[in-house]
Computed example of a mutant assay.
Amino acid sequence: MHMRSAPHLLTEDRSDFERILDDALRNAHERPDLAAVGQRLNTEQLRTMALNATALITSAAAAEYEHFTSVREELRSPSSTADRAILAPALSEAAETGAGLGAVVTVLAPVLAGTAAAIFLLVGYILKALSPAPSFAETLLTAGWFFGAVTAAGILVAAIGLLITAVRNGSTQVSAEEEPGGELPDEVARARDAWRHALLERGILPFLRAALNDPSVDPSSSTPPRQVSRIPKIGYSGPDFSSPSEGSAGVRPTFSSPDFTSPDFGGPEHQPD
């Protein structure tokens, strides 16, 4: 029988796995089957064990994950984004042009105005210190203060622009965390929800229950609990060797030494003829 291996968990989906695991551990007190959390194994030990067994846990929801990734890849395929690709260059060019011009104006305006203000004020106050002061010294000072006001206004506009950009990027980042890759279509969202549910119910929760119910689990070990192992454990037993003292006592061969008899030596009257 051919068994298809579970697809490898992609890096972009690992955050979902960790989030579901953390939620399960955080709400363990609400589940009677996880009531033993904190007695022999705490949440951090269980989390470490589950992360070490990510491949084993995610294999419980392999079918749902494969469907989810296939639907997502279809969405990302060039054929599904052809229409957007046609408009993308024009929109990108317009946005870049507008953003580039705005950035140049926002940056250069305060710099140039500040430089002009410094020059006019410096020269105006130097001329005003002379006796008699030239008539255009007041004009230079007025121009300097005008450019100073322009500099302050430019800095204020730049600060507001930076604040708006930061808020926009922050909201985009939050929505991206909630919905990776942007707002997902209904089919992809349903596939992802099905995978998350299967991962929790058939993968994470059984793993945690097995870890809590197995007294032989070492918290410092990365070996998954035996009850949730889906990899058959092949055992090898050595040949049955028994020591000579074990087993039934057999009949040992007996060896008798040859019967040697000394020659019959008699007295002189028995001398051979």
Rank of each mutant, 00 (worst) to 15 (best):
H2K: 14
R4A: 14
H8I: 14
L9D: 11
T11C: 06
R14Q: 10
D16M: 05
R19D: 14
D22A: 15
R26I: 05
A28E: 14
A28V: 00
E30F: 03
R31W: 09
R31P: 03
P32T: 07
N42C: 12
Q45T: 06
Q45R: 12
A50E: 07
L51P: 01
L51F: 01
N52A: 15
A53E: 01
A53N: 09
T54E: 13
T54S: 06
A55D: 12
L56Y: 08
I57Q: 10
A60T: 02
A60C: 09
A61D: 06
A61T: 03
A61N: 01
Y65V: 00
S70D: 04
L75W: 04
R76S: 11
P78Q: 05
P78F: 05
S80M: 12
D83R: 15
R84F: 00
I86H: 06
A88Y: 00
A88W: 00
A88D: 09
A88N: 01
S92R: 02
A94F: 03
G98W: 01
V105Y: 14
T106L: 15
V111E: 08
L112A: 15
A116C: 11
A117C: 07
A118N: 03
F120R: 01
K128P: 00
A129P: 03
L130G: 05
A133Y: 13
A133P: 09
P134L: 10
A137N: 01
T142P: 01
T142E: 00
G148V: 02
A149W: 07
A153G: 05
L156G: 09
I160V: 10
G161H: 15
G161I: 11
G161S: 12
L162V: 13
A166N: 08
V167G: 02
N169Q: 15
Q173T: 15
V174Y: 08
S175W: 13
E179L: 07
G182C: 04
E183I: 04
P185E: 04
P185K: 01
P185N: 10
D186R: 02
E187F: 07
E187T: 15
A189I: 01
A191R: 04
W195S: 00
H197I: 12
A198R: 11
L199D: 06
E201R: 15
I204V: 13
N213T: 11
S216G: 04
P225H: 03
P225V: 00
I231S: 10
I231P: 01
P232W: 03
K233I: 07
I234M: 14
I234L: 08
Y236T: 13
S248K: 13
G250Y: 08
V251G: 03
R252P: 06
R252Q: 10
R252E: 13
T254A: 11
T254C: 10
F255V: 10
D259E: 09
D259P: 14
F260P: 03
F265D: 05
G266F: 00
G267E: 05
